[in-house]
Design a binder for these strands. Structure first.
Lengths: 202, 202
DNA sequence: ATCATAACTCCACAACTGGGGAATTCCACA
DNA sequence: TGTGGAATTCCCCAGTTGTGGAGTTATGAT
């Protein structure tokens, strides 16, 4: 019925209007739920209680909106990096715990979901995910790049079957059980000396 | 310029017109490349050199087109199941090889890609993927459901980072290297006796 | 008091989406 | 020789998409 009030709303100072953040929040949620393509600019705007054109006003582009969302709401590399420091003999457990915990944390899970959902169709998002997965680790141990990648693949696969495919046997157990079940393997991949198949001497 | 010829083309008997298969081929490719939503009926039709309405004529629905594609092109469970039989001491290598080979085979890879790309956004596709991943295995060894699921997650993760994310360290090595690197872990997951964390005695 | 600028809304557009209707042409069988 | 059905086309529709333009109101600095 009644038209929305037009023009700049009263009582908001230049920088602090919460709308920009509201948009980022809504975008994060919708990207997570539907992936990049299916999350429409209009739906994000509506969910943020805002005119679609505002998104263009603030971010210009759907792409840069997505990039901003991922960049702004991501403490992820930091948390992963932190797990790498410490006693090498418990490295596997720490990394597995840190990584899988990111997927349990209601604050970081949407970002990861958004990234994964989008990475499957948008090469741009795939790049971001790759950087995130590769992260600091290879730089720290360039000779163990393959082991690191195997560990990352394993953890990623578990997150995927747990939170996207929802494999019953994986969703059944709780976080700690999962970490404990996987930690030895991760430890092995991260610390084994050889680069190829000669590591069978378990 | 000239309009396409209308009506039934000459020289084709009732059942054998190859167009239906052409549509299925094109659909498989596009679903694999773009996922369910992004692969438009029109694009599939064009890629098959066919009017979009023909798709409706043959399959009625985009959904049943997808279902038909996946159902028709799936020797996958059979091939996976076969790997389970044989010498238990080389089970891990056989399963890893069989599974990862499915992703290298140009005949089966598109199906898997289509399934995975679509599963991230469409719950329906996620169901199909789950059934495929769970497969026969848990029925064979109900007490090792978790280990089986961990193995599946690991292999799935590797396929994902290799063929979708394209992690350099994973795409760098060839199929056999990968299988060899992963087989011991798979073997362990598939044959370990315990269901939880007490398996650390490597 | 003036004025650029930031925050915001409405409208429009061109493209594309999945789906359906109707026409046309041919084949197979009675 | 009819006639029914299969294969194929074109046209249409209502909806949604990302984006751009133009207008409106308040803020903050001058």
């Amino acid at each position: 019925m009644s038209q929305q009030q037009r023009g700049r709303p009263t009582g908001r100072r230049t920088g602090d209007s919460g709308t920009r953040d509201a948009i980022l929040d809504a975008a994060l949620t919708l990207f997570a739920e539907r992936g990049y393509d299916a999350a429409s600019v209009r739906a994000i705007a509506e969910s943020a209680g805002v005119d679609p054109a505002l998104i263009r006003h603030f971010f210009g582009d759907k792409n840069t909106l997505f990039a901003t969302v991922v960049a702004d709401r991501t403490s992820i590399p930091a948390r992963l990096g932190a797990a790498l420091d410490g006693d090498p003999s418990t490295l596997g457990a720490r990394v597995a715990d840190a990584y899988l915990r990111l997927w349990e944390d209601p604050q970081t899970r949407p970002t990861l979901l958004a990234l994964v959902r989008s990475a499957t169709t948008s090469p741009h998002a795939a790049d971001m995910l790759r950087d995130l997965l590769a992260g600091r680790a290879p730089a720290l141990a360039p000779d163990k790049a393959q082991g690191t990648a195997l560990a990352a693949s394993h953890l990623f696969g578990i997150a995927f079957t747990r939170h996207i495919i929802k494999l019953p046997a994986i969703t059944a157990c709780d976080h700690d059980t999962l970490v404990a079940a996987v930690a030895p393997t991760i430890q092995h991949y991260l610390t084994a000396d050889q680069q190829t198949a000669s590591t069978n001497a378990r």
